[in-house]
């Protein structure tokens, strides 16, 4: 029998107690065990940024953390941001600026930006480029994403 470990994790404000194998990645735990499929899995080795979530408020890649390591920590996924009727300002800005096409990378961008704009509410274009340098988008060419971040910063400032 493989070793299992009991973990207690808060995801999007809800507490979960689960038995997991130590080798289970946090990304797979979120998707398969909790059924929260908003977190997307791309490269699974820390390059593409699609699986970015917040751990204790900081953007991290959920594919390079084991679920056991989230024990006692607080995770936020894209499901925590907004609802279809009440989108988060960053989500709304992505729609208005056409900052996505296929949408696969979008949850990772959104979670990276929630952390970033929280700490840096008024970034320059250069700073925005640095903030998203760990997220790949293969559709947009990034131009509209950068425009969306500028708009999101404005929206969040006037909130």
């Amino acid at each position: 029998m493989a070793q299992t470990v009991k973990i207690n994790v808060t995801v999007n404000g809800k507490q979960y107690e689960r038995e997991v194998e130590p080798r289970l990645l946090l990304s797979d735990f979120i998707r398969h065990d909790l059924g929260l499929t908003g977190t997307h899995v791309g490269c699974e080795h820390g390059l593409c940024g699609a699986c970015t979530v917040l751990m204790d408020g900081e953007a991290v890649r959920s594919c390079t953390i084991f679920a056991v390591q989230a024990d006692g920590h607080e995770i936020q996924t894209v499901e925590s941001l907004g609802t279809p009727d009440n989108l988060h300002p960053i989500q709304q800005a992505f729609i208005e600026k056409h900052a996505l096409q296929c949408g696969f990378c979008t949850p990772g961008f959104l979670m990276t930006l929630v952390d970033y704009l929280g700490d840096n509410p008024n970034p320059t274009e250069e700073e925005i480029r640095e903030a998203i340098d760990g997220n790949f988008c293969r559709c947009t060419g990034y131009f509209n994403i950068i425009e969306a971040v500028k708009l999101a910063a404005q929206k969040m400032a006037s909130h």
Partner: peptide, 9 residues
Amino acid sequence: IAHPQIRNR
């Protein structure tokens, strides 16, 4: 070093 998400960890 790499990217913000990686430096956070």
